[in-house]
Simulated assay, not measured.
Amino acid sequence: MNTWPDNRIQQLLGIDIPIIQAPMAGSVFSEMAIAVSEAGGLGSLPCALLSPEQIRSELQLIRQQTSRPINLNFFCHQAPQADPDRENEWRNRLAPYYRELELDPQMMIPTASRSPFDAILCDLVAEERPEVVSFHFGLPDPTLLTRVKATGAKIISSATTVDEARWLEAAGCDAIIAQGAEAGGHRGIFLSDDIATQVGTMALVPQVVDAVKVPVIAAGGIADARGIVAAFALGASAVQLGTAYLFCPEARISPVYRQALRTAKDSNTALTNVLTGRPARSIVNRLVREVGPLSALAPEFPLAGGALTPLRAKAESKNSADFSPLWSGQAARLSQELPAGELTKRLAQEALARFGSH
Score class of each variant (00 low, 15 high):
59 L>H: 07
90 W>K: 06
85 D>P: 00
79 A>S: 05
114 R>M: 08
96 P>I: 11
71 N>F: 08
113 S>I: 04
125 V>D: 04
122 C>I: 12
54 Q>G: 11
61 L>P: 01
111 T>N: 02
111 T>E: 05
86 R>F: 06
55 I>F: 07
99 R>C: 09
86 R>K: 15
102 E>A: 13
78 Q>M: 02
84 P>Y: 13
67 S>D: 15
102 E>G: 05
66 T>W: 08
123 D>V: 11
56 R>H: 06
62 I>K: 02
96 P>V: 09
125 V>P: 02
94 L>H: 04
96 P>N: 13
85 D>T: 10
65 Q>K: 15
124 L>P: 03
112 A>N: 08
82 A>D: 12
103 L>E: 06
118 D>A: 06
56 R>G: 05
69 P>S: 14
85 D>V: 11
98 Y>W: 13
75 F>L: 09
103 L>W: 08
70 I>S: 00
67 S>H: 13
80 P>D: 02
69 P>H: 14
95 A>K: 10
79 A>P: 02
92 N>I: 08
121 L>V: 05
71 N>G: 10
60 Q>S: 13
83 D>H: 11
106 Q>F: 08
127 E>Y: 12
57 S>M: 06
84 P>L: 14
115 S>Q: 08
118 D>S: 04
111 T>I: 08
96 P>M: 09
81 Q>L: 10
99 R>F: 06
68 R>W: 04
90 W>T: 05
118 D>T: 04
95 A>W: 10
113 S>Y: 00
124 L>W: 12
119 A>Y: 07
99 R>V: 13
68 R>D: 04
74 F>C: 03
111 T>G: 00
77 H>W: 01
85 D>C: 06
108 M>L: 12
75 F>V: 01
60 Q>Y: 11
59 L>D: 05
77 H>D: 01
119 A>M: 10
120 I>Y: 00
85 D>A: 14
66 T>A: 10
110 P>Q: 09
83 D>W: 03
92 N>E: 15
93 R>G: 04
71 N>P: 02
66 T>F: 05
59 L>Q: 04
55 I>G: 02
79 A>L: 00
80 P>Q: 08
95 A>P: 05
89 E>T: 11
112 A>L: 03
97 Y>T: 01
58 E>P: 09
89 E>A: 11
92 N>Y: 04
81 Q>A: 11
92 N>P: 03
81 Q>R: 09
74 F>H: 06
99 R>Q: 14
127 E>Q: 15
108 M>R: 07
92 N>T: 13
59 L>I: 08
69 P>D: 12
99 R>I: 12
68 R>K: 15
70 I>C: 07
65 Q>S: 14
119 A>T: 14
99 R>L: 13
99 R>M: 13
90 W>M: 07
122 C>T: 14
124 L>K: 09
57 S>V: 01
127 E>R: 11
90 W>E: 05
122 C>M: 09
116 P>C: 00
97 Y>P: 02
67 S>Q: 14
116 P>L: 01
85 D>E: 14
106 Q>T: 10
70 I>L: 15
112 A>S: 15
108 M>P: 08
123 D>P: 07
116 P>K: 00
123 D>E: 15
121 L>M: 14
60 Q>E: 12
107 M>W: 12
96 P>D: 10
